[in-house]
Nucleic acid binder design. Structure first.
Lengths: 345, 345
DNA sequence: ACAGGGGGTGCAAACGTTTTCCAAGACGCT
DNA sequence: AGCGTCTTGGAAAACGTTTGCACCCCCTGT
């Protein structure tokens, strides 16, 4: 384990002062140095295998070129592509991403945030955000660069990159209507999450625009985005005894659970009930039936968030911007036309 | 954005020298200080909201309390639970994990490694490893703490935490044999990966031990762990015209592709051919048919790797150890007894 | 009583950069 | 030729910690 090559070593070898070497090696300052000298220095540095000591640079500049990336749980298949997008984007700008899992717990989130602040990260990308998230808001108020991704905080001063959820829901509903469905239920996400709230709001909005029956009993709220909750919500829906021919779920995992519960109750999807999801998670195209869902550009959302953050850090600009990316409806086997031959029950 | 509180501030406020403060705040050195003084200093630090400047500490000690975690692709559902385990374990020891995706590309891997070395990480956990991985081996030779996880490098000096793959394959084979299968095919993983090589070797070994027909034409090698390769391999198997009643796949994704290709050729799983996977990925229990597979403790593998690495870093111990964790056979619907009369039909 | 010892604290020197401030020389302009 | 401006590169001061060493004081044993 040999000692690392420092600026001083390079300076000695090249016959210049360390400050000159520092300038020559920094693309932003190398113009202060005669091109020829700079080149010679770079050659020597290369030959000696010089590598900047990040800690020293960070100490001097108080910039670490690291950013914190907070997600609820990397194990949830929605997030890896987003993270991947973030990383790919940020790496191109020379930033390293440090990922933390919050488990959707505000305590854990703020503990992670302060842990990362101790490490001096230059900014945050946060996917793990509730509608009211004081930790995030206070970061922004402290002038730290923050971009929320996928979800959004209830405060326009916080930059965000998200999907056009309203459009996704609109597409789902018009698709179902075009298949003849009218009594359409909704398994909504938790209203603490911006996704849950958005999709629910859009559901109401477009249901009205499409002049569908506005029965409040057709909406049931889940507490978490998982299969079990999907099952529970279907049970509850059935218990209410209202007739419905389709269910719009706020999320794929809810939809998977919903289908499971329907089958258990002897109802077939899509024969008796059409079901839609949201997100287009991996594998949902391989289920029986393959899930009709809204595809969001997960990687792209992450990538754009990375770009936005890099720009905010680079320019010091703190004015919030809000990027909304388009979504696609993916029609598969879990939705089917409502034929009149079906019994009214 | 107020200035950060430094040791000096605390020292001034508490009326002690900064070195005393430093010692009081460091659990490893606080015993050098009168308990009462140490407590008073800690109180002051707390009140002022002192937070250590990680860059300065890293510069001084040349330890960053960060580790690099390299995986092929975080988007592959095998890895998130492993990463999660690694992170949870390392965080408990005060380390932050930096994740990098290598895409299985040795160039990218070594570029990431050196990028992380520049950042001065204290060690590496590497899941993205080929049987011969010079980058990894040279890290170890340089005295850097490295643990490979899930996969293993072809050099006993490199510590590893992995699954008992041989046992997994043995269980699969004995399960199939107990169902009456004899002509069992194998879709092997790429032999560049330790997983692929291990599972193939175990397949041969236990096939012989179980006195099954040893037809080399019943083995086909995939190039990558994905569904498309699974399909291709089944096509190839069918093209060879050998009879087989079961396929042991080196990986769940290969199995999913295999079933798809079988169906396309009019063969039903499990009715005509039983298929098994490996890994027990999320969702494979919800496929039709649900996949019989080998469950590996992904989270635990990661967690153990984290523990091992933390110990290596802490003690400076570089002697390699190899942890092998047990696996489980999960029997689901993709395997069925080979009988002419199906009772449950 | 005094030497020796040890525990507790202060001092100051690093760690490797970046960057401000200067000096000196080059060059252009009148 | 003289003056001012620009370019180039050197000196040195930080950045905030940790840590070997010196120092002081008090305690103890002979």
């Amino acid at each position: 384990m040999k000692r690392r090559v420092t600026l001083k070593d390079v300076a000695k070898a090249a016959g210049f002062h360390v400050s000159t070497v520092s300038r020559a090696l920094d693309p932003n300052n190398s113009h202060l140095i005669t091109a020829e000298v700079a080149q010679r220095i770079r050659d020597v540095a290369e030959k000696l295998g010089y590598r900047q000591n990040a800690a020293a640079a960070a100490l001097r500049t108080s910039r670490t070129r690291m950013v914190g990336v907070l997600v609820p749980d990397i194990t949830n298949p929605i997030f890896p592509p987003i993270i991947r997008g973030v990383e790919d984007s940020l790496r191109r700008h020379g930033y390293l991403s440090i990922i933390g899992n919050t488990d959707g717990d505000p305590k854990r989130e703020s503990s992670l945030v302060s842990m990362l602040q101790d490490r001096g990260v230059d900014g945050f990308i946060i996917a793990s955000v509730e509608l009211e998230d004081k930790a995030v808001v206070s970061l922004v108020e402290d002038g730290i660069a923050v971009v929320t991704v996928n979800r959004r905080v209830d405060n326009p001063a916080v930059s965000s990159v998200s999907n056009d959820e309203g459009e996704g829901i609109r597409r789902v509903l018009t698709h179902l209507v075009s298949l003849g469905h009218e009594r359409i239920a909704h398994i909504a996400g938790s209203q603490r999450f911006s996704t849950g709230a958005n999709r629910y709001r859009s559901f109401l909005e477009h249901r009205e625009a499409l002049r569908l029956p506005a029965d409040p009993e057709l909406v049931v709220f889940s507490n978490m985005y998982n299969e079990l909750e999907g099952e529970r919500c279907v049970e509850e829906l059935l218990a209410r005894g209202r007739r419905f021919t389709a269910i719009v779920c706020a999320n794929d995992r809810l939809a998977v659970g919903a289908i499971e519960a329907l089958v258990r109750r002897g109802l077939k999807c899509p024969d008796n009930v059409s079901v839609t999801g949201f997100n287009d998670m991996p594998m949902v195209d391989r289920l029986r039936p393959p899930l009709t869902t809204v595809r969001i550009g997960q990687y792209n959302v992450g990538y754009q968030a990375g770009e936005l953050l890099a720009e905010m850090i680079g320019t010091g600009q703190r004015e919030a911007s809000h990027v909304v990316l388009p979504v696609d409806l993916v029609i598969r086997g879990s939705t089917r036309a409502l034929t009149t031959a079906l019994p009214e029950n």
